[in-house]
Amino acid sequence: MLRLLLVFVIVLSLVATSGCAINRASASADPSLRCEAIKTVHVRFRNGDDRGTQNLIIEKFLASGFVVSADPASNPQADAVVTYHDQWLWDITWYMVELTVTVREPITDFPLASGHSTHTSLTRKSPKEMVDEVVDNLLKQCR
């Protein structure tokens, strides 16, 4: 009984302090964003990405009609650079809790548009669903 109570308190404490029921999807764009000028994008690799997030982002931009290059290859001719930041948590299994994808000017790195999603454990999405949601919301900024 005592062990059960301890487990309950542990779970309750972690839920209370780490925010377990957050669902958010948002995107924003700088007024200087000119989507019609962006045909080719270069997806920069994020150090520490050992779960294939870069590949999912490459596939999503390809499916959205862009010409895509990616690190480690370089493409100084790209119209925009895409960066991302994924955050993972463990809850029985590992899952992507947050993802930000940002479209930047190639030379200045200035953020032209950015999409961000948070889905915590109980409403978790697969990495592909996370990428789809973030990039779709990001590209909606063009319409």
């Binding site: 700088d30 930041h85 994924d86 930000t100 940002t102 961000h116």
Partner: peptide, 23 residues
């Protein structure tokens, strides 16, 4: 322009990133 970036949720060492577009 502050870009919203994932933050550390739990851990002994916290690393934050701040991503800002300045003009």
């Amino acid at each position: 322009t502050i870009v919203r970036v994932p933050h550390p949720w739990i851990g002994l060492t916290f690393t934050f990133e701040v991503d800002i577009g300045w003009s």
